[in-house]
Simulated assay, not measured.
Amino acid sequence: MLAPLAAWAAENGAPDAVTAAALLPAVAGILISLLSIVWLPRFMRPAWVRTAEHEEPLRLQQKGRR
Rank of each mutant, 00 (worst) to 15 (best):
E55P: 00
T51L: 10
E11C: 08
P4G: 13
L2M: 13
D16A: 15
P4E: 12
A28V: 08
E56Q: 10
A10F: 02
A7I: 07
S33N: 07
A10G: 07
P4F: 08
A47Y: 00
R65Y: 09
A20V: 08
E56K: 09
L58R: 13
L24F: 03
R42S: 11
A28W: 00
A6E: 05
G64M: 11
E11Q: 11
A20M: 09
R42T: 11
M1V: 14
A17I: 08
E55L: 14
M1Y: 06
Q62A: 15
E11M: 10
D16M: 10
R42E: 13
R45F: 00
V49T: 07
M44E: 07
V18F: 05
A21P: 02
A17N: 07
E56L: 13
A47H: 01
Q61S: 14
W39Y: 03
E55Q: 11
L34G: 07
L35G: 04
T19A: 14
A26W: 01
W8Q: 13
P57Q: 01
A47P: 00
P15Q: 13
E11R: 10
G64A: 15
F43W: 05
A7K: 06
V18I: 13
A47S: 07
A26N: 05
T51C: 03
I30L: 11
L58I: 15
R50C: 06
A7W: 01
A17Y: 03
P4Y: 07
V27L: 14
L58E: 14
P41G: 11
R66P: 05
P25F: 03
P25Y: 02
A20R: 09
V38R: 07
W48H: 06
K63T: 14
L31H: 02
A52Y: 00
V27F: 06
